[in-house]
Simulated scan of single mutants.
Amino acid sequence: MQNTLCVTWLGRQPYRPVWELQHTLRRKRAAGTIPDVLLLLEHNPVITMGTRETSHEILLSPQELASRGVEVFKVERGGEVTYHGPGQLVAYPILSLRHHPRSVKKLVHHLEEVGIRVVARYGIEARRDPRYPGLWVEDRKIMAIGIAIRDGVTFHGIALNVHTDLEAFSWIVPCGIRDRGVTSIARETGQQLSVEEIARAWEETFLEVFGYRGERVPLQELLEGEVQPAEE
């Protein structure tokens, strides 16, 4: 029997409430009161820093960032500095590794595989680089990955550039890599696809790669515990 994955599309959201939401759902998943969850959304402009000290990789002053409406957060995911903003698909999988064992390495590999298959639908050949997690089109990064695990449950996730304003990446040293570029589906194809369309492709492909049975669930049902826990 396939495990159930509850999928929720949140639309465009500020960063902090969704970060807090991940922790709420993570705790519920660790307690076994909800199934695994996949959050799909796009963020308002924000720069996040991972567990390494990377404040020097933010190239604009706090005042310059504020004038552009960009927030900055230090968070507990792996990786270094990255940018989230409109036109970028963000996917946060809240998965129990205790009940559905898979190594962190395999988890990252699966997330990369989802990305490879999604962009291939639009004629883009993305590849892995063993030195850097994420996906690349030649020497241009199209998808970033940063995962955290607490109490055996994953949170944080991936950011796939759909039609993101790539100029924003010049405000930072993306993922600490100075000698490579950044790209998007729009840049590579000339197509202005919606983030929601790519989210549907991501959902379908995620279910296929991870072997889940998907169920679209309103967020409020998850928060109120109205979704039956997965059979472990």
Rank of each mutant, 00 (worst) to 15 (best):
A186Y: 12
D179S: 12
V173I: 15
L135R: 06
I158T: 15
P133Q: 06
G176H: 02
T164M: 15
A126M: 12
A148E: 09
D139W: 03
H163A: 06
G176W: 01
P174W: 05
G152F: 01
R178W: 00
I147V: 13
N161Q: 11
E138L: 07
V162W: 05
A148Y: 02
P130A: 11
V137R: 05
K141T: 04
Y132K: 11
A201Q: 14
L193W: 10
V182D: 04
G152P: 07
R150Q: 11
E197A: 11
P133N: 06
L160R: 08
C175W: 01
H156D: 01
A186H: 15
I142E: 07
R200L: 11
G190E: 05
G146Q: 07
I147Q: 10
R178Q: 12
V173G: 09
V195E: 06
L166P: 10
I147M: 15
G176N: 06
Q191F: 02
K141N: 09
L166H: 10
H163D: 09
Q192M: 11
V137Q: 03
P133S: 09
A168H: 14
T154I: 06
K141C: 09
E188Q: 14
D179N: 14
R127T: 10
A159F: 06
G181T: 01
I185L: 15
Q191S: 12
C175K: 07
R200Q: 13
L166N: 10
L160A: 08
A144E: 11
R187H: 13
Q192C: 02
P174S: 06
E203Q: 13
I172H: 01
S184G: 08
W171S: 05
D129W: 07
P133K: 08
V153F: 07
C175P: 08
C175F: 01
D165Q: 10
E203C: 06
S170D: 13
Y132N: 13
R187I: 01
R150G: 01
G152V: 00
M143C: 14
R127M: 08
A144L: 05
G134S: 05
G157V: 01
R128D: 05
G152L: 04
E197F: 00
I172E: 03
R127I: 00
L193C: 12
G157K: 04
D151K: 15
R180A: 12
A168C: 10
G152W: 02
P174V: 01
E167G: 10
R127K: 14
V195Q: 05
P130V: 04
I172R: 00
Q192K: 13
R131N: 08
D129V: 00
V195Y: 04
L166G: 09
V195M: 04
E196H: 13
R200H: 14
A148W: 04
D129I: 00
T189G: 05
